[in-house]
Amino acid sequence: MTTPDTESSLGTRAAAAFVDYRAGDAQALHTLVAVVTPVLWHVVRSCGLSTQAAEDTVQTTWLRLVEHADAITSPQAVLGWLCTTAKREAWRVQRATRTVDPVADLEPDLPTPHDPAQVAAMRDEARRLWEHFVTLSPKCQQILRVISMGGAPDYASLATAMGVPVGSIGPTRGRCLAALRTALLSDPDWSLT
């Protein structure tokens, strides 16, 4: 059994757990679920699904993995496969439940924290960051939200799974992160901790 370093990248930990799962280690599937579910949550939420629909969609994504595990040729690809599958499932749910122009589905509304208590719970730094973040285009919010769930080694694979051309984010900064960076660095009330 492999013993992934908890400090290693998300993709590496997911791949190690996936290898163990395919080798018959049932506990490894739990590890894989625990590691990747937070990313999938933000993938489907960034597609504009309600919390309830998002929970269903993430569950369905995992069922798809169990169904199609044998078709994933490289363990390193499992993180991207899960994100791509989650995104497609989310779009499918969106199409089935909305009656708007399908083109608009490509830029769905992002969920925002409407609950004042939720917003109040944010630290000042986080609140300032969020205020700038929500001024970005929906597509940039979607990409950055998902990218941020991984570490630097994961940026490129997560970006690819979200449909961003290879090389746009990771190893290079990309337009979306550049826009957020510009906004933050020009805000005198915001500083990196």
Binding site: P38, H42, T112, P113, Q118, V119, A121, M122, R123, E125, A126, L129, W130, F133, L144, R145, I147, S148, M149, Y155, L177, L180, R181, L184, L192, T193
Partner: peptide, 12 residues
């Protein structure tokens, strides 16, 4: 910035 965004999204 991405680390801070991850913490923020987790709160939001």
């Amino acid at each position: 910035i991405l680390d801070a965004l991850r913490r923020t999204v987790a709160l939001a």
